[in-house]
Design a protein around this nucleic acid. Structure first.
Lengths: 132, 132
DNA sequence: CTAGTTGCAAAGAGTTTGCATGGCG
DNA sequence: CGCCATGCAAACTCTTTGCAACTAG
């Protein structure tokens, strides 16, 4: 679907690749790329394209109504569960061994087949735990 | 905050208690209680009240923009991680022992403190796994 | 009686879409 | 030069809110 490489597209993808461990809403990206004057509809259209292309992943953030997106640059992103800090918004990766263990145990014990890609656990990260 | 017991309130809560293992959006409840002619704003206001009162819990559903709610009738709901089936929308409870294990291991290994209440893992349940 | 609750319609947030213009290849 | 992408504004969806009418206690 994506045929041309436009300036706007490059800037949006570049933004994600330079912030690989955080999640962002369309509005946040719009604001942070303010000096590029990219229209909000272009942001939305590109986020959808990038999502379809598998370069970013759509996810929810507890207590918000907006869609959030995170960069999926790493192979590991596809093979482990994500942890999202409610305070700073950063994304962490659960240890692969533990992810796998959880998934297989849940399949066995509960007959439930977790899909890592869509699954985000919420909580507070070590950093934010310290500062009140 | 909830002082009076109105007909609308009773019907909404009753709806949840008779569907304890599924999640619903405001619109779905509105449609399913159609013959009671409860206005959509009353649905929303009561969902907020019931949430504050701890009788239902707000949660996200992957790939949707709406808020979903589930009945929190059980004590166990407050102490374990939830599993949401992407196909049928039903909610399952992860075994408490496994929930606890996961939370303490993640705290240790990753320095990340999961909050059960907000955390929903997505996947496919045993039932839906069988039917394609 | 009177304060909480409802219904309606209007306002708000977030997101999508139609259409003319612009720019990549 | 042709088609895709962009920008703008309007439309849409989900949710909240103001206000007058209604009702539980």
């Amino acid at each position: 679907m994506t045929k041309y490489s436009t300036d706007q597209r490059k800037k949006i993808l570049n933004f994600f690749s330079t912030h690989p461990h955080e999640i962002f809403s369309a509005r946040q990206i719009f604001d942070m790329l303010d000096d590029s004057h990219i229209s909000i509809s272009t942001i939305y259209r590109n986020l959808s394209e990038l999502e379809k292309a598998g370069k970013i992943t759509r996810c929810n953030k507890a207590g918000t109504r907006e869609a959030f997106f995170k960069y999926t640059h790493l192979e590991e992103c596809k093979h482990c569960i994500h942890l999202s800090c409610k305070k700073c918004g950063k994304i962490f990766h659960m240890d692969k061994a533990q992810s796998d263990d959880l998934i297989s145990k849940t399949a066995q014990n509960e007959q439930f087949f977790i899909e890592q890609t869509d699954s985000v656990l919420y909580g507070v990260c070590g950093n934010c735990q310290h500062c009140k």
